[in-house]
Design a protein around this nucleic acid. Structure first.
Lengths: 242, 242
DNA sequence: TGATGAAACTATACGGCGTATATTAACCTC
DNA sequence: GAGGTTAATATACGCCGTATAGTTTCATCA
């Protein structure tokens, strides 16, 4: 176990990265089902079994991919929300979250399916492994949305929630970051997620295709309705001041 | 082509029904991926290839299952909505639709996945076959919801839709049944679908499990918010008259 | 410098999957 | 009884994930 054994470890990291990259490319081309060890190995010019040296099992590889994709989504949303957090526009975070979420989903439909659909035959791996990390980031972004909207939405809210309705670990992360957000505000964040998730998943999976040719118009209309139902102004601060 | 060949046709129909029933049982037990011809045949005590006499291909079988499940969902929703169409409660259809949709989804999560998720490796079959039938029924139920809510929601609606935004065949079915419903009302129906679909799909796929232990409370809260945003009374006509 | 041993990779095999083809048995119709 | 449709079978092929054993590569250290 030499301390200077950096070279082989670097090679190993590169090969690992290439495996994941090829797997993502295969998934983008043919869906999650196209992630087969043989196909990856074929693409890389090596044997399928060699991959077992990098991932204990195919599900491990898939789990890692899910984590990576989830992280990418979290990055996208966090970036979009940083640009919208000017404080003058309480609807900004909602619009940023919604736009980033749908935009990323439409740009990476296979990744969206991998994370939010049935991944592949196998099961989800770790029962508490790496996925929650990125999922937590997504949830915290949602809470930022809820925190921005809550002062406006609170008078309209009729939900009856308390902290015991939510995961204890989640609560510990939320309360320090958003001390002003009550349980009903957390619920609001999750509701906004579900609210917007529906149209996106229907669009990604093609279930809207038989009905409308303008899913974007539908989504924008729904977003406007969401903003209105939250008591938020429909557009930026300029219009709100008029 | 004898006219009296009823016996064999009856046997054939029975075997066909048994194949589908076994396939649904397998799906309920192990997810859509568990639908394998071999497993079905094993369960029925015959050879996998014998199924090719009843279904040209495995995808044909899956398509038929999707159609059956979709029909069951449409039946459930239509029944629930018939019970809510007393005319005195404009929010009744929305609540009936939402309750029936989520209730059916929770009672048949595998069926829900089959219809609204990635079915199985293979493709969807007919590009215009049997599935649209049931999908149309679901859509018409949605339009009944929208028609009941539209007189209340219209003043709040800010969508800008016209008929060209929707499928021509769909329009022909909608207009005779709901002549008072403008394009924005149709969009409202689809939006309600997407609105409620999101939380249900997140719950079915387990993505809410890490956050909340009360998905039902969350859904009811969201439903109340939907009713409010539509300008509808939150409960039955009794409360509305107060 | 050269042996050592871990790591990367290959070769081969097994069972399960969907599918295709050819074959046999049962049945109704004429 | 003959002809033709249908049910069911046996067998084979290729692809999949996985397991095991064997081979090459190469950093490490005496």
């Amino acid at each position: 176990m030499g301390v200077t054994g950096g070279r082989r470890e670097r090679l190993r990291a590169e090969t690992t990265a290439e495996i994941k990259q090829v797997a993502l490319a295969l998934m983008a081309a043919g869906g999650p089902d196209a992630i087969t060890l043989r196909a990856i190995a074929r693409e890389m010019g090596m044997t399928a079994n060699a991959i077992y040296g990098y991932f204990a099992t195919r599900d491990d590889l898939v789990s890692t991919l899910i984590h990576d994709v989830n992280t990418e989504l979290a990055d996208t949303i966090e970036t979009a929300m940083r640009g919208a957090a000017n404080g003058d526009d309480p609807g900004g975070p909602v619009r940023a979250w919604a736009g980033a979420f749908r935009g990323w989903a439409l740009a990476n439909p296979q990744g969206f399916r991998l994370v939010y659909g049935d991944p592949v035959p196998g099961y989800r791996a770790p029962e508490g492994g790496a996925a929650p990390d990125a999922a937590l980031r997504l949830c915290l972004a949602l809470m930022a949305v809820a925190a921005a909207a809550w002062p406006y939405a609170a008078p309209l809210d009729e939900g009856d929630f308390d902290w015991s309705d939510f995961d204890a670990g989640l609560r510990e992360k939320i309360r320090p970051a958003f001390p002003e957000l009550p349980p009903a505000g957390v619920a609001l964040g999750l509701r906004i997620w579900g609210h917007l998730h529906g149209l996106v998943v229907l669009e990604i999976y093609g279930h809207l295709r038989a009905q409308t040719s303008s899913p974007n118009k539908l989504f924008q209309s729904e977003l406007a309705g969401l903003l209105r139902s939250l008591g938020l102004p429909p557009a930026g601060p300029a219009e709100r001041l008029i």
